[in-house]
C-alpha cells in the first residue's frame, strides 16, 4: 500500500473550503437546534396539553426516523409542501430540527431537575416565569446538562457528513469526490476521519473548559 500525501497538497483549497462548509453548517445547525430545543422544552414543561400533544408527535416522528430520510424529505420533498430550499439552508434546517428534538429532551430533564419548591418561592415573591427560567432554572440546570449537550453537539458534527447526499460541498463530499477522482481512497478517507476528529476534539475540549469553569463556580457550594 502506498500513501501519497501529494493528493492533499494538490487539493488543499477544496479541502479547506469543505472544512469550512462543514464547520458552518454544523455550527448553524447547533445554534438553530439549541434555540428550537429550548422553545420545545419550555412549551413542554410549562405549556398546556394543546401545546404538548403536537410536540410529542413531532418528537416521536423525528426520533424514530433516520436523519438521512428526514433530510431527503426536507430537500426533495419540501417543494411539494411549497418549501423550496437551497441545499445549505435545507441542510441547516434538517440538522437544526433533528438536533432540536434531542436538545429539547435534554433541556426538559434539566428543567425537571430544579426542585419545584424553588419555583414556588419565586412565584410567591412575584418573580415571573420568564425571570425564573433565566435566573433560577437555567444556571442550575446548565451544570447538570452540559455533558449531555456537548455530547449531542458532537453527534451533530458527525451527522453533517449526511449532508453530502443533498449536494452540499462539505468535507465528506469533497474528500470522497477527490477519492473517486484519484483512486486514493485510503488517503482521503483517513483525512476525512482526521478532519472530524479535529472538530469533535475541539468541541469536547471547549465543553470540558466550560464544565470546569461552571464546576469551579459550583464547588464553592459543597452539597
Amino acid at each position: 500500500m502506498t500513501f501519497d500525501p501529494s493528493i492533499f497538497t494538490d487539493h488543499l483549497g477544496d479541502i479547506g473550503a469543505g472544512f469550512l462548509v462543514t464547520l458552518g453548517t454544523w455550527s448553524s445547525g447547533v445554534v438553530l437546534g439549541l434555540a428550537l430545543g429550548m422553545l420545545i422544552a419550555v412549551a413542554q414543561v410549562f405549556g398546556n396539553n394543546f401545546v404538548r400533544a403536537p410536540l410529542r408527535v413531532l418528537i416521536e416522528l423525528i426520533r424514530s426516523t433516520p436523519f438521512l430520510v428526514q433530510l431527503f424529505l426536507v430537500y426533495y420533498g419540501g417543494p411539494s409542501f411549497g418549501i423550496s430550499l437551497d441545499p445549505i439552508p435545507a441542510g441547516i434546517l434538517g440538522l437544526g430540527v433533528y438536533g432540536g428534538v434531542y436538545f429539547a429532551q435534554i433541556f426538559r430533564t434539566g428543567f425537571q431537575s430544579v426542585a419545584q419548591g424553588q419555583l414556588e418561592a419565586a412565584d410567591c415573591l412575584g418573580i415571573t416565569r420568564l425571570q425564573s427560567i433565566w435566573r433560577i432554572q437555567l444556571p442550575q440546570m446548565l451544570v447538570m446538562i452540559l455533558p449531555a449537550l456537548v455530547n449531542m453537539v458532537t453527534v451533530l458534527c458527525k451527522e453533517t457528513a449526511v449532508l453530502s447526499i443533498i449536494t452540499i460541498p462539505e468535507l465528506t463530499m469533497v474528500l470522497t469526490g477527490i477519492g473517486s477522482e484519484t483512486f486514493a481512497f485510503v488517503e482521503t478517507l483517513l483525512m476525512l476521519c482526521i478532519g472530524y476528529l479535529i472538530l469533535v476534539e475541539l468541541c469536547s475540549r471547549l465543553g470540558m473548559l466550560l464544565e470546569t469553569r461552571i464546576g469551579r463556580f459550583m464547588s464553592r457550594q459543597p452539597r
Partner: peptide
Amino acid sequence: MVFQQFNLWPHMTALGNVCEALRRV
C-alpha cells in the same frame, strides 16, 4: 411565604437570595 424545605436558590448567596426579588420585582 416560608416553606418547610426553605426553598432557597442554591446557586445564589444568602444576600443574593434576599436581593433577587428586590432587583427583579
